[in-house]
């Protein structure tokens, strides 16, 4: 029983990270209607940025916040310089540019910080004794922190999209940029803001995850696959759905990996993708996504 709980909790903690990164994907999607494949690498680069601040002598919390600010601004720059010139309807070009950005950031981080893992401190106490017991298993402070920050960000995004004038403008812009302009929305700025928010959230994820994964250029790669799966599963336009789907994926993946011998840890990733495929066959819009409707 204890082992079962421990496996659920482990999966849950992974799922929290998947859901968190999925949130960043949803930010870009909600603000622009596009998928940013470089989201994970942007988060990784931001984690290194936080490390650089920390190494320069800033306290951990300030280093993380600093990286968020830098990420926020950098997200805007990326949108302005790489994405906006392509125009709103260049879906495939934008997808390709995000792949290019992925490679650039991945290689760039390697050039600047090298290929060896770097230690990154947690913002909360994280000696082996810093945990609370929960049904016979251990919840580490660091894991609790990630979960709490995730919930705060998720609720914040949900409220923004659902109840504010800006959130409505972001959704309108993602859905129909031409009409959004005719309603007086500053479509370019709104797109930029979507990227900025996503990059800021990404920086937070990178810096919060780095203490458990150690800081490497490959730290986000796996997570991005799961996050894309979670966002698809949850419905790309739903922050709450993305987070829930991420957590479900994490738990199911870990349980199947632990209890089904032939899956083991090697095929764990395939489990997530099989779930994704199965859900999409039944509900193409994801579990929580709203159906795209169009009548002509």
């Amino acid at each position: 029983m204890d082992l079962f709980v421990a496996r659920v909790v482990d999966g849950f903690n992974n799922g929290v990270i998947y859901g968190f990164l999925a949130l960043a994907l949803v930010c870009v999607y909600r603000g622009t209607g596009h998928l940013n494949l470089a989201q994970g690498e942007m988060a990784m680069f931001s984690a290194f940025t936080a490390y650089a601040f920390y190494a320069a002598g800033l306290p951990v919390v300030l280093a993380i916040l600093g990286a968020c600010v830098v990420g926020f601004i950098a997200g805007g720059v990326v949108e302005r310089v790489l994405i906006r010139p392509l125009g709103h309807h260049a879906d495939y070009s934008i997808l390709l540019v995000t792949i290019g950005l992925f490679l650039m950031l991945n290689a760039g981080a390697g050039v600047i910080w090298g290929g060896d893992p770097l230690p990154f401190p947690a913002p909360v106490p994280s000696t082996p004794d810093d945990y609370i017991s929960f049904l016979g298993t251990r919840l580490r402070y660091q894991q609790i922190l990630v979960f709490v920050v995730l919930v705060v960000v998720m609720v914040g995004l949900f409220l923004l999209f659902r109840f504010t004038r800006l959130g409505l403008a972001m959704r309108a812009t993602a859905s129909n940029p031409d009409s959004a302009r005719l309603m007086g929305m500053r479509v370019n700025q709104i797109n930029g803001l979507g990227w900025m928010m996503a990059a800021g959230v990404g920086a937070l994820i990178g810096a919060l995850v780095a203490p458990s994964t150690t800081l490497t250029t490959g730290m986000m790669f796996n997570f991005l696959i799961y996050a894309a799966a979670a966002a698809t599963l949850g419905g790309f336009d739903s922050p709450v759905g993305a987070v829930l789907a991420g957590i479900v994926l994490g738990v199911v993946e870990n349980l199947v990996g632990s209890y089904v011998d032939w899956v083991g840890s090697d095929l764990k990733q395939a489990v997530a993708l099989v779930i994704l495929l199965a859900v999409l066959m039944v509900r193409p819009t994801g579990l929580f996504g709203t159906k795209k409707v169009e009548r002509v």
Binding site: L168, R171, A172, A174, S175, N176, D178, S179, A180, L182, D237, T290, K292, V293, E294
Partner: peptide, 11 residues
């Protein structure tokens, strides 16, 4: 009022 009505279908 644009041609084709410009409905924001997802809202």
């Amino acid at each position: 009022v644009p041609q084709g009505r410009g409905t924001v279908v997802d809202l």
